[in-house]
């Protein structure tokens, strides 16, 4: 078991290095000159050349790449062109907000999603099933920004229950978390419902009933653990959509997080900042998947390698 986890960690490192390289080259292929964009119409060719030299952008790509990789390994992602502050500092500043948002959204999505899925499977085709599946369909089919604006208009603007945007308190994160998590909750609820219904048809469920287990005991002790295996995979996949969704959610709700930092970096052609945010996000997603893989190994003995 430890061996398979160790090999997964090795694979994870390879993925991170690959992504680091990919970001670097993609940013060089994308048309548009970073310095020209920063200077806008005031710049002449001489100034642009001077600034480029200052930022090291006139060096050959492999030199730039070397500087970027060695820096990144030391945790140095360079200095933001636009904000004139180290990228690392900016990342660490926004990181807590994004984590708060993503964790809250994941909690909304996964707890509500799994519970709704269980109830829906229990009351198959009943009233609650239809209600939950209706909500899940809404969540899956509405884009995040639309949910965000509907929530802002109704809950915040009309009802004044929660703040519209900005702020650092937990209260300010409730609406963004719902907006971001609803979509994931919808798909988790559907998947939980269908896998649970499938698992409940299995022979070992009959065995558990024949042992004298109650319906609740059968579900919690025998069905759920098996049904959670595909759900766990989906949760891991959703980590990336939660983080990319955070880009939009943070922008709509005015939260200073990594997503918003990335949006600013893209519009300002802020190469070091963009490299930093993308790499950071990648590491988060890859680590999330690693955790899911390890959990998988714990939950399902069949994929453990024999000792």
């Amino acid at each position: 078991m430890l061996k398979s986890i160790a090999s997964r960690i090795g694979q994870t490192l390879i993925v991170i290095v690959g992504v680091a390289m990919l970001i670097f080259f993609l940013l060089r292929i994308v048309p548009g000159n970073a310095v020209a964009t920063m200077m806008s119409e005031h710049a002449d060719a001489a100034t642009i050349a001077r600034i480029s030299a200052e930022l090291g952008l006139d060096k050959p790509w492999y030199v730039q790449f070397w500087i970027y990789i060695t820096g990144a390994l030391h945790g140095d992602f360079g200095t933001s062109y636009a904000l004139h502050r180290p990228v690392k500092e900016l990342l660490l500043l926004s990181f807590p907000n994004t984590v708060k948002l993503a964790v809250l959204a994941a909690l909304v999505a996964w707890i509500i999603g799994v519970l709704a899925g269980i109830v829906a499977a229990q009351k198959k085709n009943g009233f609650l099933d239809r209600i939950f599946m209706g909500f899940s369909l809404l969540g899956v089919s509405m884009p995040v920004f639309m949910v965000a604006m509907i929530l802002q208009y109704t809950i915040a603007y009309k009802l004044h229950w929660l703040p519209i945007s900005g702020g650092d308190s937990l209260k300010c994160f409730i609406l963004p978390a719902i907006a971001l998590g609803w979509n994931s909750a919808g798909s988790i609820a559907r998947l939980t419902r269908s896998t649970l219904l499938e698992v409940l048809q299995e022979d070992y469920i009959d065995t558990a009933r024949a042992k004298g287990r109650s319906q609740m005991g059968v579900i919690v002790l025998h069905a759920l653990r098996n049904a959670m295996l595909p759900v766990l995979t989906m949760m891991a996949l959703q980590l990336s959509s939660l983080l990319s969704g955070a880009v939009i959610t943070e922008t709509v709700f005015g939260i200073n997080g990594i997503g918003r930092l990335a949006v600013d970096a893209i519009s300002g052609r802020d190469i070091p900042l963009l490299q930093g945010t993308v790499l950071f996000t990648t590491v988060l997603v890859v680590l999330g998947n690693l955790v899911a893989d390890c959990l998988y190994t714990v939950l399902d003995p069949r994929i453990r390698k024999e000792a």
Binding site: E202, D203, Y204, D206, T207, A208, R209, A210, K211, G212, R213, L221, H222, R225, N226, L299, D300, P301, R302
Partner: peptide, 30 residues
Amino acid sequence: VRGGEISMIFQEPMTSLNPVVKVGKQVSEA
């Protein structure tokens, strides 16, 4: 009554045991 006074064993031993629970635990559960 189930499992206490009347027990049942099924046709498919390959699928009648929960794949993610140790067999000892499944028996001691009963």
